Simulated scan of single mutants.
Amino acid sequence: MQPCPGDDANFWILRPILAGTAFQLKGIGKFAPLYYAIEYIRSPLSSMLHADNKSMKMTALASLLPATLAGYYLPTFANFFASTLESRRSWNAAWQLFPVVVPLLQLPFRIMAKPQPPAAPKESKEQRRNNMFAIRCTYTTFAAISGLSFLYARFSAPAGTSLASIFLPGLHGHTDAVGSFSQGIARFLQYDQILSMASGFVWLGLRFRELKQSGAQVSWWKSTCAVLGATVTVGPGAAFALAWGWREELLARM
């Protein structure tokens, strides 16, 4: 997510904390549609094309990757691969706090950032191009981690188990009572994933529509096939990261 150039520091930090806490307490599937809707309304493409002060956006971008790696991915993988059960429980407890930890890890970057002087439109475009290195590092890293995790799940699944049965709820029996706690959690996570990822892809579709309306060369047929192909091959998380990166690449050329 990218903050609107007019966002103040408090909202820039509080928004992901409040949203992430709601995700953890009630499930991301319930609040993701609302979160993406708010982000879409607050950060229209016009504000990104014509805003003079880009320091907020680039500060958020520069801190997003290290903060997410340290505050989210580290406890996530330690939660699964720690040597003892007790340490896994400790890492799981630490992981629960990531909605607060990740934004707080970004806070020092925001405090140390200095507002940049207003730039001419030509300079603003050049500045966006110069920052594409950081953007590419971010979305390729997220895509690689998500894609490798998806492939690990695919090839480590028990024999005879389909990916559809792991990630998608069945078409029948979804209203039946669950027989165990693990079965209930599995069903909850399946619906949680579908609702959150569907919201994200709708948000991406709206963002690409903005680009197309502003003159970017976007083919809906090619875009849809690319996202579907990436989703099947490396998973929806990697597909989302790559599509977001593609959107940023197109935006940098405008």
Results as ranks from 00 to 15, higher is better:
residue 129 R to S: 08
residue 164 A to T: 12
residue 206 L to S: 08
residue 176 D to I: 07
residue 138 T to F: 14
residue 169 P to H: 14
residue 134 A to C: 09
residue 136 R to N: 09
residue 142 F to Y: 09
residue 208 F to Y: 15
residue 186 A to M: 06
residue 168 L to W: 15
residue 169 P to I: 10
residue 208 F to L: 04
residue 128 R to V: 09
residue 191 Y to C: 10
residue 208 F to V: 03
residue 129 R to C: 02
residue 153 A to S: 15
residue 170 G to H: 14
residue 128 R to W: 15
residue 199 S to Y: 01
residue 126 E to V: 06
residue 141 T to V: 05
residue 174 H to C: 09
residue 134 A to S: 11
residue 207 R to T: 10
residue 144 A to V: 01
residue 128 R to F: 13
residue 147 G to F: 03
residue 165 S to L: 01
residue 197 M to F: 07
residue 128 R to S: 13
residue 195 L to Y: 04
residue 140 T to P: 00
residue 178 V to R: 15
residue 135 I to D: 01
residue 199 S to I: 01
residue 204 L to A: 05
residue 127 Q to A: 13
residue 130 N to V: 05
residue 158 P to K: 08
residue 174 H to T: 07
residue 137 C to S: 07
residue 184 G to W: 04
residue 173 G to I: 11
residue 150 F to V: 10
residue 176 D to P: 05
residue 156 S to T: 12
residue 144 A to S: 05
residue 150 F to A: 10
residue 185 I to C: 02
residue 144 A to N: 00
residue 146 S to D: 04
residue 132 M to H: 00
residue 138 T to M: 14
residue 204 L to C: 08
residue 156 S to L: 08
residue 213 Q to H: 12
residue 162 S to N: 05
residue 143 A to I: 00
residue 202 V to D: 03
residue 208 F to K: 04
residue 146 S to I: 00
residue 164 A to F: 07
residue 197 M to W: 01
residue 173 G to D: 13
residue 189 L to G: 01
residue 147 G to Y: 02
residue 212 K to N: 12
residue 201 F to M: 01
residue 175 T to E: 13
residue 136 R to C: 11
residue 141 T to S: 12
residue 154 R to C: 03
residue 189 L to V: 12
residue 181 F to G: 04
residue 140 T to C: 03
residue 170 G to C: 12
residue 189 L to E: 07
residue 183 Q to V: 07
residue 171 L to Q: 10
residue 130 N to I: 08
residue 194 I to E: 08
residue 129 R to L: 12
residue 137 C to Y: 08
residue 188 F to R: 03
residue 147 G to E: 03
residue 172 H to L: 13
residue 187 R to I: 10
residue 181 F to H: 12
residue 195 L to V: 01
residue 149 S to Q: 03
residue 185 I to K: 10
residue 182 S to R: 13
residue 157 A to K: 15
residue 142 F to P: 01
residue 200 G to I: 01
residue 173 G to V: 09
residue 193 Q to S: 08
residue 134 A to E: 03
residue 179 G to K: 06
residue 176 D to S: 12
residue 211 L to K: 03
residue 204 L to G: 02
residue 156 S to D: 11
residue 213 Q to Y: 10
residue 209 R to N: 15
residue 204 L to W: 05
residue 150 F to P: 07
residue 166 I to E: 05
residue 160 G to K: 09
residue 171 L to R: 06
residue 152 Y to R: 12
residue 130 N to M: 14
residue 193 Q to L: 11
residue 185 I to S: 10
residue 183 Q to F: 07
residue 191 Y to Q: 12
residue 188 F to P: 02
residue 205 G to L: 06
residue 146 S to L: 06
residue 144 A to L: 08
residue 194 I to Y: 07
residue 152 Y to I: 14
residue 131 N to M: 14
residue 154 R to I: 02
residue 137 C to N: 05
residue 207 R to K: 14
residue 136 R to I: 14
